[in-house]
Design a protein around this nucleic acid. Structure first.
Lengths: 143, 143
DNA sequence: ATCTGTGCAAATAGTTTGCATCCTC
DNA sequence: GAGGATGCAAACTATTTGCACAGAT
């Protein structure tokens, strides 16, 4: 079973273990994020779930982040993004076009190794990390 | 001469070459950033330069970023940070305590190498990058 | 003299909070 | 039935914009 399919179930369990009840808003946010592999902003989520109040979206995202189920990413201007966090699985980072805003995900093992080594060396108990590359995408460059 | 001492002069030149005039607000922002090695938020800058209008601070930072003189960093919640960008010189990244907000800067060559390799491999013309580690600092952990 | 830079205040945009009500356990 | 979950609206915070005036070239 793919980790992506597994995630909503893990989320349900983690939420229940945290003593949280299952309401409609948070459940729908979980379902939506389960089907997205890359980051959505809170406002995008709110737009896609018209029956859900915006405050509930923010509250759900905050809780999911605290439980380690969701990763918040700051891709640049404007709003923060939120994406599913798969535990053992690969996780990706982002490269953003400064002109058109296009976002591409990538994975890189040597990057991950360097960061893991850094974490061990530091005084911090490192829980997560985020890497963002910025520049001009191929399409924007050829204009 | 250290790159840090050199920066304000480079900034003056770059601004002049871009056809921009030298007003009091932007000059003071440049002087302030010249003396700081790590990121300040726009509001911190505004607080430290009480005679300068807040809008001018934001405008100056935006121009300096476009000219590549300043790096904008998104360290997490709240406001964006802005720090001097030294051209050839070492540049650093950040590790942030999720509890107390403390920010530590670090440099790492293998990290830089991995990112440089990634940039070459991608379709993007990568202009900058940002790495942020998050976790719990030693002091917060022992409580 | 011209045209950019600046300050102030108002407008935006994203996010958070207060509170009455709904719904899960 | 009790207490968390939700929706709405208002409050907040960071940032941007409009505009009149000051200041640099």
């Amino acid at each position: 079973m793919s980790p992506a399919l597994d995630w909503p179930e893990r989320a349900r369990q983690a939420l229940a273990e945290a003593g949280l009840r299952s309401g409609a808003a948070r459940r729908q946010v979980v379902e939506l994020l389960a089907g997205e592999s890359c980051a959505l902003t809170a406002l995008e989520i709110d737009r896609r779930l018209p029956e859900i109040g915006r405050a509930s979206v923010y509250r759900a995202l905050e809780q999911l982040e605290e439980l380690g189920l969701v990763q918040r990413v700051d891709l640049g201007r404007d709003a923060a993004g939120y994406e599913r966090r798969d535990p053992g699985g690969h996780h990706h980072h982002h490269i953003v076009c400064q002109r058109c805003g296009r976002v591409i995900a990538f994975e890189d093992q040597s990057l991950e190794r360097a960061i893991a080594a850094l974490g061990k060396r530091s005084d911090f108990n490192v829980a997560s990390h985020e890497v963002t590359l910025r520049g001009e995408c191929a399409e924007c460059a050829e204009r």
